[in-house]
């Protein structure tokens, strides 16, 4: 539980967010990788990929079975700090469709405790297209609150009305910055002010560089910003300052 206590220690003070407007709504980006929407008392987290290691183990690749625990402990720390009334999991919460069924009992209990007294929304993702079993919460394909729409995969259109206020995950954005002959790669938020892609939150989730062609389907070339996750703050960069992998 040492990871949990250290998170608690870090987050007991009012969490500091980087506030930005998305489609006219002020939302806070947090260095843990979650989105905090103060007006709605809502916490948004993307791509937990719970039970990813056991999903691999089924195929004979024995990744360490500690990813679910690590991810939930980190989530618990964040929940403790923000104490949200509503939580939206933006899809790929489980690494495969049977993931929620495999969830070991202690983790199920932990997750259930986190859900207590909160509105909990599971947005479906390509990894978990069905509602999780034996867990509370409402399952939706996408959902809107006011000017913001929450879905897993971004719609591949630019400048369309449908994409205004879109909050999504799926892409696992990461960015690389080069400096002093060294390059640093971190997970990041990516936004053009009308829509926002969250970084993947899960412990064993990698990242896809924002210079990848996939992002050119949702942002105009180089006309977006990223916020790299640091140890206790975010680092903003414009896309033109980033390098590929």
């Amino acid at each position: 539980m040492s990871a949990l206590t250290s998170h608690l220690r870090n987050y007991t003070a009012a969490p500091v967010c980087h506030d930005i407007p998305i489609n006219g709504q002020l939302v806070g980006l947090h260095d843990s990788g979650v989105l905090w929407w103060p007006d709605e008392n809502t916490l948004v987290v993307a791509d937990l990929h719970l039970e990813k290691a056991s999903s691999y183990a089924r195929r004979g690749v024995m990744l360490p079975p500690y990813d679910t625990g690590a991810t939930l402990e980190k989530l618990a720390g964040v929940m403790d700090a923000f104490d949200p009334a509503r939580v939206i999991c933006l899809g790929d919460s489980f690494h495969d469709a049977e993931g929620s069924d495999r969830l070991p009992a202690p983790y199920r209990a932990m997750l259930t405790t986190l859900q207590l007294g909160r509105e909990w929304i599971w947005v479906t993702g390509n990894h978990d297209p069905v509602a999780p079993v034996r867990l509370c919460g409402e399952t939706v394909d996408e959902i809107s609150f006011g000017p913001l729409t929450f879905r897993h995969e971004p719609i591949e259109k630019i400048g369309s009305e449908e994409t205004e206020g879109e909050i999504c995950g799926h892409l696992h954005p990461a960015a690389r910055v080069r400096r002093f002959g060294r390059s640093i790669r971190r997970s990041c938020f990516a936004t053009d002010g009308t829509r926002l892609v969250l970084p993947a939150f899960g412990a064993l989730t990698g990242g896809l560089n924002v210079t990848d062609a996939a992002y050119s389907m949702i942002f105009r070339r180089r006309q977006f910003s990223v916020f790299l996750l640091g140890n206790d703050r975010l680092f903003p960069f414009t896309a033109s300052r980033l390098v590929g992998d």
Binding site: P64, A203, G206
Partner: peptide
């Protein structure tokens, strides 16, 4: 190879945190 590098780094982090004498 790039993707392998990323995931093995994450595996290392998780393993080191949870079973350092593996």
């Amino acid at each position: 190879g790039r993707q392998v590098t990323v995931s093995s780094d994450l595996i290392y982090d998780v393993l080191r945190a949870h079973e350092p004498d593996h």
